[in-house]
Nucleic acid binder design. Sequence first.
DNA 1: AAAGTCGGCAAACGGTTGTTTACTGAATGA
DNA 2: TCATTCAGTAAACAACCGTTTGCCGACTTT
Lengths: 207, 207
Amino acid sequence: MSHTPGVRQAQKQQSRRALLDAALGLLEHQNLSGVGVREVTREAGLSPAGFYRHFRDLSELAVVLVEESLASLHGMIRRVLAEQDGSEEIIDRSVELIADHVREHRAHVRFLARERHGGVRPVREAIAAEFGRFADEVAAGLAAQPASEGWPEADVRMLAELYVEHMVATAAAFLEAGPAGEERIARTARTQLRLITTGRRHWLDEG
Amino acid sequence: MSHTPGVRQAQKQQSRRALLDAALGLLEHQNLSGVGVREVTREAGLSPAGFYRHFRDLSELAVVLVEESLASLHGMIRRVLAEQDGSEEIIDRSVELIADHVREHRAHVRFLARERHGGVRPVREAIAAEFGRFADEVAAGLAAQPASEGWPEADVRMLAELYVEHMVATAAAFLEAGPAGEERIARTARTQLRLITTGRRHWLDEG
DNA sequence: AAAGTCGGCAAACGGTTGTTTACTGAATGA
DNA sequence: TCATTCAGTAAACAACCGTTTGCCGACTTT
């Protein structure tokens, strides 16, 4: 096989992917500050030096992981917002979606929860930035709902942030709980969402 | 000086304190998985071997730090709950207390936020256990308030967990924000608390 | 077919690490 | 006073670490 352009690039991408996957796997049980270049390359089946053909740094690799992790989360939030209003069913469905997401992307969620306040500045900032965009999107979705009529923009934004924060907390709780405690977490999360929604319905009545 | 019993113990406690303080200092900018025994002893002014006269492990030391960190937080929550009900002023005061606490115990708060989902199992579990006790205390405080009359115990508990989660999130946000963005964080936190409180007031009206 | 590009490798660099060992000397109790 | 305890030490251990170097050989372009 030769003279077919793109083989080189494809092989390189494959190694790159192997590095990213290996790192994500290791990060499920360790901190970013706890994994090393050698460890990652060992797991990926490369030589230590090979790492530097792809990333300058482990934190550079981690920033890529951040983007990938939140891309999948983004898809989820879009599905939630597509449905109508703050009704009872949409709450059940949201929590179920979060649970599914944690089951399917356990490593990504762990990584985000772990490094959100972790010791590596650039990674922390990347996560914060993505979460910000995330809240923007939620805010836009909320603003489009009838329940938000007459709401000041700032209030919509703070509600969005509250929802995002709650979603992250719920996802983290799912992570920690075994399949046994899953239902308990879900029930609590649903009730909390119902309470927040109650507050939302009566927000303009007072103050 | 001699023959005065207790000198030995006192000196040992002093070294122990030095180790704990050194570790806490280092943990302000690094992950627990990122600091080493040698690094801590160097900072504390001990020889590496000296560490093992006090702790078996770095994670054993960290668990002690967890307890110390939450002891100070405990004092804070007691002050908040001592005041009356979910009125407007108590919300302002709570957020102000959180801000103060972060200013005064920055290292402790950083440590908790960082290791809450960190890579060291025993530390994670210690933090989770303490946060649980914490929520218990908040729940007890809430149950004693008139606003909780007629509430099922489970609902009080979930409200307590929501408050605790929100408090932790707020504290973490204060950490990340420079003194400039502090007021923005505080304003958002206050509004969110007001919304939750609104939900609380109308909780029994529906559903 | 020849020349160039470049991803991956082995090896070496100087440095770090956690932990154990045998020891010293001051605080202790008899 | 004398024997004992024990916090702290220096030194050594083998095992790692991140990063750079020079090189090879398969892909790519001309």
